[in-house]
Write a protein that binds this DNA or RNA. Structure first.
Lengths: 348, 348
DNA sequence: CAAGTGATTTGAATCGTTCTAATAACATCC
DNA sequence: GGATGTTATTAGAACGATTCAAATCACTTG
């Protein structure tokens, strides 16, 4: 029967060393599989490790080695499936590399973002993957994370500008192109009065998508009415509420390019409440391709972003940076792909 | 202009102490707001802290104090909105208490669960909140986390039994009662041939829900056909695929109690593909009340579990345990509430 | 003025690792 | 036999904080 210790102090290298008559240093070498140690000693030590139920104290090791084995992941809305998938991807890739994920959720609040970053940075993560809250400012973030910890920005830019010495990497989606593709698609289906729905212009990704939309509209020589730009918070409930604004004012749109899938699904709900049938009387596109997009009725035409893959990619970027801290900072623009489903019906 | 340090070593207590001519001990006292230190010294030290841009090294402090300021959160499927919400709730409550969340996602794999727990435990979390993967065994989990780290089990039981010395708390949903309520509701709406759809019997929560269903059926004197129990993985896609099995064999059911919302939404999709209209020709109930439940067409009748609140609650349980490690281990059964929407139509 | 008091400050040990430089034991070579 | 390697092992100082006992200082006070 293995001797287990139901209660008592934690086992340390000293206990093991004492337990089999070698020095602490030797045990440490065994732990890290050094070739310097004799086969027999190694076996004896390993047996003792098992017997006493030793567990490695990585925090102590990190302190001594001045390294880190964690990465902080700070997202603006974990409850959004896009970010949940993203987080799963990040955690997966970090885990494979032997890192652990420190989670922080800001709920789209700049204040909480500050608090969360502050708390996480004190735990000494090797780096930070940050999807900023709307309205988050570069100088504020830099002030709390400091210049020592590498940052990968995901999804959104920060407000203001970073000093040159902070070389932060970026992983962004091809927002402008995506929104342009969606708009062109709706135009090709015969729509001429097309709205842009959701989010706020505070967010860089929103501005980019809006720009793509405008680009396509202008290229097609189509006019754009002011009341075709409706802002809302990124929840289904708020999007449903905001839907009605599309029909107040002049000529009502027959289609909408939505900031993302959550906004699009909320818009569908709002339209249904008005008796307008999405995918029938009104065409809609989303952005993200979250799992629900394929499953909703009507299914949602959208831009696929492969959030889990993006998560892995963000993790890879950070790991690369940790390997080479001096490398030139880079921006990766992840491609997006138009997925046509039922919601982007032709003009009836 | 504040002097910032774009590059260089990390600032420690020693730097601060040297920088304003006091001892390391004094600076430490200032940091923790001790009343022992003189007002003037405190001011001088605080100024220096700001000037040098000091950041606290919580790992070092934890090592010395033999405490922990982190909690590991291990979930079986982060991409499931139910768990994403749960995670957000956990992180929120832990953050308020000054703890940081170490994330681990197992993707419903017992192997990954082991690996994830192993890696997390080495970072010395104060405790673990675990929603086990299907088929996870008590003795295996205990062996890797050890008896020193308190655990709160959420949502599912582990297989096998725990030794008495491991007093782990539990936060479970009132699965049996919930499923019974759902079934009784469908019976009250006139259904007599009711299926139980989704998940696998490996999972304790699934067995409990199934038991609740059987209980209601028996109480109403209704027969249960074997092919009315259809298992599937907890993704919409697999649920949609599995839907067809309901109609193979004898008398087809007119309603289904689903293991959870994801299964229910997938079932809807599968029914639509067969030309059966959920909420019209076929009644459905879910479990969890994820955000999409209210938004789907038809909207989904389900059992509300308030996942974010459960997350907070799990965190509270763990924090209470950290405050009093010797307290009797407890099991909390969180109430669930039937939310009637469109999907549970009367028998047509 | 010696001793007592309260308010501040500090030296040194410690947490559980890693790592450098030193030591020890033993074989090899001229 | 002494110089030279080779191979295994280890003592002890870090890492960046906390903490306790002890020291220092400025005042009272009998």
């Amino acid at each position: 029967m293995e001797s287990q210790t139901p209660v008592g102090r934690k086992i340390t290298l000293n206990d093991i060393a004492a337990g089999c008559g070698v020095s602490r240093a030797t045990v440490s070498l065994v732990l890290r599989g050094s070739p310097l140690v004799n086969k027999l000693t190694r076996a004896r030590v390993e047996e003792e490790l098992r017997r006493q139920g030793y567990v490695y104290n990585r925090a102590a090791a990190n302190l001594r080695r001045r390294t880190s084995s964690s990465v902080a992941l700070v997202v603006n809305e974990l409850a959004n499936p896009f970010f949940a998938e993203f987080a799963a991807g990040v955690d997966e890739a970090l885990g494979e590399a032997g890192f652990v994920t420190l989670l922080g959720n800001t709920g789209e609040s700049v204040g909480r973002e500050q608090a969360v970053l502050q708390s996480l940075i004190e735990h000494g993560p090797g780096g930070i993957i940050l999807s900023p809250a709307e309205g988050s400012e570069a100088h504020a973030v830099l002030a709390t994370v400091g210049a020592h910890t590498p940052v990968v920005l995901f999804n959104r830019e920060l407000g203001g500008t970073l000093p040159e010495y902070a070389h932060w990497d970026r992983l962004m989606l091809d927002n402008q192109r995506g929104a342009r593709l969606a708009t062109e698609h709706l135009i090709a289906r015969g729509h001429r009065r097309i709205a842009f729905f959701g989010s706020h212009d505070d967010s860089s990704s929103c501005r980019e998508r809006h720009a793509g939309y405008l680009q396509a509209m202008q290229a097609a020589g189509l006019p754009v009415e002011p009341h075709w730009r409706v802002e809302c918070a990124l929840t289904r409930v708020d999007a449903a509420r905001a839907a009605h604004a599309l029909f107040e004012g002049g000529a009502a749109p027959t289609a909408a390019v939505c900031y993302n899938d959550v906004a699009a699904l909320g818009l569908m709900l709002g339209l249904n409440q008005r008796g307008v049938r999405p995918g029938h009387d009104f065409a809609i596109t989303g952005f993200d391709d979250i799992a629900e997009a394929a499953m909703s009725t009507p299914s949602l035409s959208t831009l696929s972003t492969a959030p889990r893959l993006r998560g892995r990619q963000a993790a890879e970027l950070l790991l690369a940076r940790l390997r080479d801290p001096q490398a030139q900072a880079g921006t990766v623009i992840a491609p997006v792909e138009l997925v046509v489903r039922e919601s982007s019906c032709p003009l009836s």
